[in-house]
Design a binder for these strands. Sequence first.
DNA 1: GTCTCCAAAAATATCGATATTATTTGACAT
DNA 2: ATGTCAAATAATATCGATATTTTTGGAGAC
Lengths: 221, 221
Amino acid sequence: MDAMLDTEGKETSATHGAYRRLREMILTGELPPGQKLKIEQLRGILDTGASPVREALSLLTSDMLVERIDQRGFRAAPVSKCNFEEILLLRCNLEETALRASITNADAPWEDRLVLRHHHMKKASQNGARDFEDAHKAFHMALLDNSKLPLLLRYCSQLYDLNIRYRYLAAGGSSYKKRDIAAEHQQILDAALNHDADSATRHLIDHYRRTGEYLSSQMEP
Amino acid sequence: MDAMLDTEGKETSATHGAYRRLREMILTGELPPGQKLKIEQLRGILDTGASPVREALSLLTSDMLVERIDQRGFRAAPVSKCNFEEILLLRCNLEETALRASITNADAPWEDRLVLRHHHMKKASQNGARDFEDAHKAFHMALLDNSKLPLLLRYCSQLYDLNIRYRYLAAGGSSYKKRDIAAEHQQILDAALNHDADSATRHLIDHYRRTGEYLSSQMEP
DNA sequence: GTCTCCAAAAATATCGATATTATTTGACAT
DNA sequence: ATGTCAAATAATATCGATATTTTTGGAGAC
């Protein structure tokens, strides 16, 4: 009768709530890479018991956002240029596979979804960066999700998150609108709607490489 | 002073022990796909508390061997022909990438490791299936690990495990020695030692496809 | 002045118990 | 008979406390 005093009745379980909050804090850099994550300390921040915190950290381990050292607790996953470049490489490879499969399966409902997500993303770009981030991910995942390959989608989603972490770390999350990113998205969308797999994947990969090179240049060796 | 009464002093933490044991039980089919995994019941089997069991199940969730339904507990991940085919597809894609990278970085220590693993695998094929499984995985991972791409290796390892689960389910783990698998391994090894990436990846993928088709034919739609 | 070793402190891992939530059972009405 | 609802049952999620392990800090020896 005490667990329902949350600000909202939105969160179903304490574990899930802690998971979402911690994930957010790690992605945005509020919990910096390599930082020791002490249960007691987090218990305070998240206002919940030790068990949900432990379980949330376990779940984040699978997302590769937290490292677990047996008998020695948890820490936020470290970052490195090497790691960043691997993420970029794998994204290019996996997203190309997924996008091609999506286009192979192309149908009207998918195209509708794409157009809608793209529209929402454009609208959200006028709001805060947080809203845009969500809409941006939704658009990119919509490009891929017609592949009907759940494992592949899961990997793409994971790698996407690992990548935005580097964006936040490099430039506070605002490094975005500096290039003409809207035009790049439009090109990808158009090619996808035309079922032109070669063009779509080329634009998508260019999109990633360009952001990747910018971020890479911002990092120490 | 009670945690050390195990048969051996090998296991460091109860969680890790439970993790390994549960993983084994799911991979081999002792816990069949879709089975409800009740904490109390597992607590009995694994002879430990509820917390380590919960945490082990959380970790297995990341390996995609266990599904978690919020507020409704855990169950062994379901299987399907679709899922199997996706695993095969991704393995071909990711392992090709990893093997090519490994060969690009080829050096003497790696080649030594390969030869050694291959030798151990041949020796283990005379022992039990369990020993062979371990040696077989070690050989395949050795092929890839010179890529120096930890994320990619992690995915390959995960997919490898998901795949051997299907082998156990289809044929009790012994469907193996029916084809001349030794010759296939030899071809892959030779090509890798010759730094012939095209040949090595071709043999590797053929190796997977052949096993895949056999297993696929054994399954209902 | 530096190193080693032991005691104190802190943090993790684990347990047992309780509160919450899902599931089943059975009685009642249709 | 059958469908619905409420009480009983079972299972999960969470808490608070304890045992184990790691880390810290300092005293004594070289």
